[in-house]
Nucleic acid binder design. Structure first.
Lengths: 335, 335
DNA sequence: ATACCTTACGCAAACGTTTACAATAGATTT
DNA sequence: AAATCTATTGTAAACGTTTGCGTAAGGTAT
């Protein structure tokens, strides 16, 4: 059928062993002449390696599987770019698997697609595995690493931003700009949303340090989606907040657009600082001030940790990008 | 090392042949009792199939490789969702490979990653292969199908929108709303951009039919990017156009934001109709009227055609979505 | 009773590689 | 001259699965 090393062996007169050694570049096992002859024959015959055979015998491969959510939010591209970069540097290949969106079955399919072949390791980009699927993953004894998600007390390793720090920094920034009534929108604080909890804790800490009493209607929970932003803003219009921290850029834009509908101006009537800092921030008017996560680096370093077999968690730095969605009050906007 | 059918065979007392037949469900070759015993043993041992072995012997697999560009534009997600849907229906798996952005090497890596293992077929999502890589693909004798891209006179099969129709429809729409000076921005008209050519032709046809003489500064070429939109608008501000058709949503938003910088109002000073109609259109203010492509269906049907081995090209329907970026002139906006 | 199916299973080859081990020839050392 | 080393190549086993072919037991038709 298709051309194999056996064909090359026949054509060149060498054994398949020699051909294999040349083709997989096991230096020191062949002469330059031999190598030339083999390579020449290979291109003439249009040889293409059959990785299935290689993976079968070596029980490893150079491909990293990346599992991503059918991305509501849009930062996965940056993470994947980082992954690709590092992978290319270490001459690894990467394949990407979509795990749907909170879809247990799709998640399992993606996982088994990865697991049922020899693979270097698995990178899980902001996917929260269902318990059953986590068991499946663990039982495979294949290295894995989570990116852009964190967990409490599980032994799982991840790289992400320091979400407590994010919550704290965003809040502090707003306070420094004279805000005292600050909302937090679009995330969850039940145990399943660890990220949400951390950000909320950082937010509360900053409030407390500045003697601001948290009011419960400042927190509008949600699922990081545009729609979360829209509905959150409806609630805020009944409150006295002057600024809100949004859990994702989409939430921020939801807030922004709901403001427009309500006849409110950003930043004059309401300030927004958003978490993520993807290019969406610069697409809307006004451009949104953001706590920008270093998604590229998450992917880059995460890949590195996966390959190195790191057993520790890591955090990437965030950066505050001032744009035009936060108003400065020179007097304290008191109670 | 990991558990194989041999282990199951040992445990159950059957031969590997029988175990294999049970596990791959070759009905008619085993009794129900046997099947139960085998399945029981399989879960007890934590058996996981080694696809490399299967693919090696069968020389096929149930995985479809999807190659995408490191997506400047953001419609790939919708296409991929469509692909996943159809694939799931036909119990195929899909893996996604990023081909970088106009990066010949990355493209080749993605291609060989797919090619060097048995695979059902390859879907190329809006990627324009370099000639060398196209040769590589063709020589592999693996089915492939292009999505969201079209070609002139090559024997390549694709599914996409009818780009001539898109150009025509958008132009006609603007004319019907009283516009006579209509720009087209963000695409190319050299031979390498076949999509751009088709849209331009449709645009010209609509102008001609309505006795409008095309002026060369109405066309601002570009590469479908946000930046293309920004620079195009700088040029338009020196012209008399009242409306522009943008080659992608990002181009549209670029135009929109440049208008803001220039102190121009959309749609009062300039109307925009954009091609693609992704969710970006609803994120900006004003929401952009669009020619919306059915990306989901492209993915869905494209997958179907790939599996069916279709040798024909196909076109999906587009839909005009009125939003708020086009102003209606009740008098003809004459020369 | 014979011939013929059917059902259920095992044997063994095959897929295309890699690699441990063995072998050869020539070069170098003693 | 013998011993040892080095460079190059070959032989064959192994990876885990699928599947054509063979076979044995039991059933059914004649």
């Amino acid at each position: 059928m298709s051309v194999t090393i056996k064909d090359i062996a026949k054509k060149t007169g060498f054994s398949v062993a020699t051909v294999s050694r040349v083709l997989s570049n096991k230096t020191g096992f062949f002469s330059q002449e031999t190598a030339n002859a083999v390579h020449k024959a290979a291109v003439e015959l249009g040889y293409k390696k059959n990785m299935a055979a290689t993976e079968l015998v070596t029980q490893t491969s150079n491909v990293i599987a990346v599992i991503v959510n059918s991305t509501k939010t849009n930062f996965s591209n940056q993470i994947i770019t980082g992954i690709q970069k590092k992978a290319a540097e270490m001459s690894k290949r990467v394949i990407i698997l979509y795990a749907g969106d909170h879809d247990q079955v799709a998640q399992k399919i993606a996982l088994t697609t990865a697991l049922e072949r020899p693979i270097l390791g698995i990178l899980l980009v902001s996917v929260d595995l269902y318990p059953k699927n986590l068991l499946l993953l663990k039982s495979a004894h294949i290295p894995f690493f989570f990116i852009s998600i964190s967990f409490k007390d599980t032994g799982l390793n991840y790289i992400t931003s320091d979400d407590y720090q994010i919550g704290y920094t965003a809040t502090k920034y707003l306070i420094n700009h004279g805000h005292r009534k600050i909302g937090l929108a679009g995330l969850g604080i039940d145990p399943s949303d660890h990220t949400g909890n951390l950000r909320f804790n950082g937010y509360q800490q900053a409030l407390t340090e500045n003697n601001i009493a948290f009011q419960h209607d400042w927190l509008q929970i949600g699922d990081y989606s545009y729609e979360s932003g829209l509905t959150a803003m409806k609630s805020y219009s009944q409150t006295n907040v002057t600024a809100v921290i949004t859990a994702s850029d989409l939430v921020g834009i939801g807030i922004l657009n709901q403001c427009t509908k309500l006849g409110l101006n950003v930043p004059n009537d309401l300030s927004i600082i958003t978490i993520d800092g993807t290019n969406l921030c610069q697409l809307v008017q006004p451009p949104l001030t953001s706590i920008t996560q270093n998604f590229f680096q998450m992917g880059y370093l995460g890949t590195n940790y996966l390959i190195a077999g790191s057993k520790k968690n890591a955090y990437t730095n965030v950066q505050l990008c001032q744009r035009s969605s936060v108003k400065t009050y020179h007097f304290k906007n008191s109670i």
